[in-house]
C-alpha cells in the first residue's frame, strides 16, 4: 500500500492550496463581477452545456466560477474556453473528483 499512498499523497491538502493554477492568463479587461455556477452532480456534457448558457448573461470582464465533478470536463471546459478566446484565471482540483475552473468572459 505504500506505493499507492506515495502516488496519492501529493493530492491531499490541495483544497486550501489557494489560487495557484499554472496557466493563469492575463486578463484583457478590468475587474468584473464574479459569478459562481455549481454543476456538481451533473454528468458530462452538462457542466459545459450549463457553462455555455450561463456565460451568455455575463458582461465582458465578468468571471464565471464553475464547480464540477465529471472527469471529462477537465478536458472539455478548458478547450471550450481556449476556442472561445476566454481566459482561464483559475483551474484547480479541490478534492477527489472535484474541480473548479474560472473562465473570464472576453
Amino acid at each position: 500500500m505504500s506505493f499507492f499512498k506515495n502516488l496519492t499523497k501529493p493530492l491531499l491538502g490541495r483544497a486550501d492550496a489557494g489560487s495557484t493554477a499554472t496557466a493563469v492568463l492575463e486578463s484583457p479587461v478590468g475587474e468584473g463581477q464574479k459569478y459562481r455556477l455549481d454543476t456538481v452532480g451533473q454528468v458530462c456534457p452538462f457542466p459545459l452545456v450549463e457553462a455555455k448558457q450561463a456565460i451568455k448573461a455575463l458582461a465582458p470582464g465578468d468571471e464565471l466560477i464553475i464547480d464540477f465533478d465529471c472527469t471529462q470536463a477537465t478536458d472539455s471546459i478548458p478547450h471550450w474556453a481556449a476556442a472561445a478566446g476566454y481566459p482561464v484565471t483559475n483551474f484547480q482540483q479541490v478534492g477527489d473528483a472535484s474541480w473548479t475552473i474560472t473562465v473570464q468572459k472576453a
Binding site: H79, A81, A82, A83, V88, F91, Q92
Partner: peptide, 24 residues
C-alpha cells in the same frame, strides 16, 4: 491550429507518475 493556450491544472508530481497519472 490551436487558437489559444489551453489551461491546465497545477502539477504536484514529477517523472513517471506525472506522465501517467497527472498530465492530460
Amino acid at each position: 491550429v490551436s487558437p489559444q493556450k489551453v489551461a491546465r491544472l497545477e502539477t504536484t508530481r514529477t517523472g513517471f507518475a506525472h506522465l501517467l497519472l497527472e498530465r492530460p
